[in-house]
Design a protein around this nucleic acid. Structure first.
Lengths: 199, 199
DNA sequence: GTCTATAGGCAGATAGAC
DNA sequence: GTCTATCTGCCTATAGAC
């Protein structure tokens, strides 16, 4: 369990900007970027909107910082998986579990929900969203390559396509599961997906 | 090709309410419900916001009408598939093609994009979104049952779970493909999904 | 059914005091 | 860094004339 929610951690010293990102991240993962406002965030934080603007001049700045931090934390989680899991199937299992954790927090993947709003996002945010997906797919491709080399995985399509398929499938399973408030909807799809790769 | 875009069809007589739904549907499928306004719709329609309020008193009413009409049209497309396709694999193929068509129009599935915004939707819209998913899954379950009976499909999980997996996978493949403006990203995932069922 | 006009609220953002 | 105060603009929605 690496991808801990900062808001649930021990109360270490955190600056206002960091705490603002914590609140904004959760709100966006629940309501979407177009569904939240400076008022929402600053109210939860106990400061004024003007103070929040001091840390993030524009909403685009805030959104960009949100994605960058999320992507970094996700990348760190992937490095931890590489260290702690030895074979490809186990790594893919841990990867799916990252998504399941997010969903159990009643949230959508940050970049998944931003993908839905993609056409309305300021440009710097758009680039950061696809960069997140690209990073994930590259990591998945490496895992798939390792799995093929060690005969632990059998792919029926090019690695790149399979990697894209894994990402899309997990994002979609989250997307549909959340309205039902039922994380097990996600689990079944994830299990079937991974079973199809080891088959 | 059943699910034709009314805006691209021959100019048959259409009332203002219908034309408003056409415009709103496209806008929501591109920008999301929180990303559009009465001003956007009425401007494209060449009428005032007040006139639009005559047809749809509140935005919630408009949204509800949007989903209901979309769901009806989708259900009609499914009935056509049942009539024109004889075996389960072919039906699933046609089902995936419905999604591919939407994506080629640079749109997201209406209910897929609304699922992302679910927590901010007025209640009547929330119920209509899950009802759409439920309808789709019931149809898929029936197709899967037929495919199993005729030994055309081999399922490695309960029909219900497989149906949920198909829906989620296709929605997710659309969600991620759209930011890249590359419909082929969707096709690869859809093909692999169906191949795994006939396997 | 469509219009003009407008209400009332909230959005993102800024100026300037402390 | 945080505040109060304020601006401008857009939002949903309504009143009432035509």
């Amino acid at each position: 369990m690496t991808n801990r929610d900062p808001e649930e951690s021990e109360p270490v010293e955190r600056g206002t900007a960091e705490r603002a990102l914590d609140v904004a991240e959760r709100l966006v993962q629940v309501r979407g970027f177009n569904g939240i406002s400076y008022a929402d965030i600053s109210a939860e934080l106990g400061i004024t909107k003007a103070s929040l603007h001091y840390h993030f001049a524009t909403k685009a700045d805030l959104g960009r910082a949100l994605i960058d931090r999320y992507a970094e934390r996700f990348a760190e989680a992937l490095r931890l998986i590489d260290r702690e899991r030895s074979d490809a199937p186990s790594k893919l299992d841990a990867y799916a579990e990252l998504y399941a954790e997010v969903l159990r927090g009643e949230r959508m993947c940050l970049c998944g929900i931003l993908a839905a709003e993609y056409q309305t996002l300021p440009e710097p945010m758009q680039g950061a969203v696809t960069a997140f997906f690209d990073d994930n797919e590259h990591w998945l491709e490496a895992v798939l390559a390792e799995g093929e080399a060690k005969r632990a995985l059998k792919l029926s399509a090019p690695r790149r396509e399979v990697a894209q398929g894994i990402l899309g499938t997990l994002e979609g399973a989250m997307l549909v599961a959340r309205p039902y408030g039922d994380p097990t909807r996600f689990d079944a799809t994830a299990r079937a997906l991974l079973a199809g790769l080891t088959g």
